[in-house]
Design a protein around this nucleic acid. Structure first.
Lengths: 109, 109
DNA sequence: GGAAACGTCAACCATTTGGTTGAATATCAA
DNA sequence: TTGATATTCAACCAAATGGTTGACGTTTCC
């Protein structure tokens, strides 16, 4: 999928989609169940899930007639890493920063 | 300013605005200088800077006829913290990160 | 087979977004 | 005062976004 910062940040810009992501933090869900708490059509939620999928923030897998939605953390992590470069205003040693990230991520590859 | 996750993430969704932020990481800049490398009108850049200001990602301060633009990291950090809520996946540890920054800044103040 | 459940598609609509241009405002400098 | 520089404003435009509804294809179950 087009896991760019553009698609990730614009996916995260919508409150409905952020709520969906936090719901999926608890557990994987079917599309209909994701839609249930929202006061909007199933089609609208389906579109939101499409946006999240394109951004790489979730994956969808169809089993029978049910499509399961599942968080996919990689895209969010990429965006988060980009942001961490800014959290601190000045003069961060970028090489050291990347080395730091290495140590942080070294155990999950 | 309306420093909500909505405004912050949608501000970050545009590549021009992200580039502007990384330019400001190096140094504070006047509006005209921010606009210089882009192939778009000054008015367009002025709008982008307005979006960044509304999101709380930068501040603008007028001195004479020049308006200086300066990174304001707080809003980005709020968004970053929201993302860390998905931290079961995210190996970056904020405490460790801050400790890292300590080491970065301890010798140049 | 037929009905219900699951989900998407297509067409449509209103609003927002990202850009343009030209005029306007404010400040500096000669 | 006159003119140049710095920035925004206002009107406009095309495209994208977020929602609707109704029809449609699948899968499940009796």
């Amino acid at each position: 999928m087009a896991r760019t910062l553009d698609t990730v940040f614009s996916a995260l810009a919508d409150p409905t989609r952020r709520t969906i992501l936090s719901m999926l933090l608890e557990d994987d869900m079917a599309v209909t169940d994701v839609a249930e708490p929202f006061e909007m059509s199933l089609a609208a939620i389906s579109k939101h899930l499409g946006v999240l999928t394109t951004a790489g923030l979730i994956t969808q897998e169809k089993h029978g007639r049910v499509k399961w939605c599942k968080l996919d953390p990689d895209a969010m992590r990429d965006a988060s890493i980009w942001m961490q470069g800014f959290g601190q205003f000045e003069a961060v040693n970028l090489d050291a920063f990347e080395a730091f990230l290495e140590t942080q991520f070294s155990d999950d590859v």
